[in-house]
């Protein structure tokens, strides 16, 4: 088995197993993929593709949701 991948998720380092998809990451964190949006290396990761896109070492991800605001 290859080494774990190093990612930056919402500004913090995180490691995942090789072969993980974005959907694996999101559900691994414990989030409902239907309630969040994901940006990978500055590009939107469309929700319909989250299960298909495999993560790469060094990926920078932003996972956002709606919060209260004016």
């Amino acid at each position: 088995m290859a080494e774990e991948l190093s990612l930056t998720v919402n500004g913090e380092p995180r490691r995942v197993a090789p072969g993980s998809s974005i959907a694996d990451l999101v559900s691994g964190i414990g989030l409902d993929p239907r309630k969040v949006a994901v940006e990978r290396n500055g590009e939107i990761a469309p929700r319909s593709t989250l299960a298909d896109v495999l993560l790469a070492d060094g990926d920078v991800l932003e996972i956002v949701h709606f919060v209260g605001g004016g």
Partner: peptide
């Protein structure tokens, strides 16, 4: 609503 990082 605002858009913010999820608290992972």
């Amino acid at each position: 609503v605002a858009v913010r990082r999820v608290n992972v």
